[in-house]
Nucleic acid binder design. Structure first.
Lengths: 109, 109
DNA sequence: TTTGTATATTGCAATATTACGATTAAGTAG
DNA sequence: CTACTTAATCGTAATATTGCAATATACAAA
């Protein structure tokens, strides 16, 4: 079917999955890393930086923006992107809580 | 095309994306959470726990095993699954390093 | 206004993912 | 052996994702 049965899972489980999913593509990882590295706004050199078509990058940016991980400000004819620090922190906390589950006393297998 | 151009990205970027991708489905999140909660082997009640078909759960388990996040031991007619703690720690470190990128001095946008 | 530049959107084609039923494989119990 | 249980695999249908070219939009400069 290709259709995820979200109704079978908790809100938290769906949220974790959605966050992970948006990070689950190397182009989006690369975009985020670049925005962190520059540590400021970036106005469109992402297409050169990553080797994909302009329309493809634009689509990935849209997804990142939709999940709230980045912000985009229009500056004349170009658009200025950067990490949405507030949402990034929230997202980080949700993921960290999931990743940090204690694993010490698993004496099985 | 539906085909990711992995050759355009670094090994690290692809690795982060692969890890995130496998977590990017609520059923797999639920499986992992259950294994952590039980904190021991679980032998097939995952199908009851989560409301998906046995073959679907089996497929998700396969993906988690393939990424090394869980281990499966055959015990008679059933199979015993648990978190692969060593690999989980490695994965956690890779993801944490990505998530913990400093975000403080972004004065843009 | 016309031209140029930067980004978004649209419309595909190719491939991937999700889910399930049916079947298979492998073990256990009688 | 047969019957039963459990889990993996196969086949298939429905939907999603990825990527690109072409086009549209929006602004700036001449």
């Amino acid at each position: 079917m290709g259709l995820i049965k979200t109704e079978k899972f908790s809100k938290e489980q769906n949220e974790i999955a959605l966050i992970a999913k948006v990070i689950g593509h190397p182009a989006r990882v690369a975009i985020l890393q670049h925005l962190f590295k520059i540590n400021a706004c970036v106005c469109g050199d992402l297409v050169d930086e990553i080797g994909l078509a302009q329309s493809t990058i634009s689509q990935h940016l849209k997804e990142l923006k939709h999940m709230g991980l980045i912000k985009g400000n229009v500056e004349g004819t170009s658009v200025c992107y950067c990490i949405d620090t507030e949402n990034w922190s929230k997202m980080k906390q949700i993921m960290s809580q999931f990743l940090d589950q204690d694993v010490s006393n698993s004496t099985c297998c």
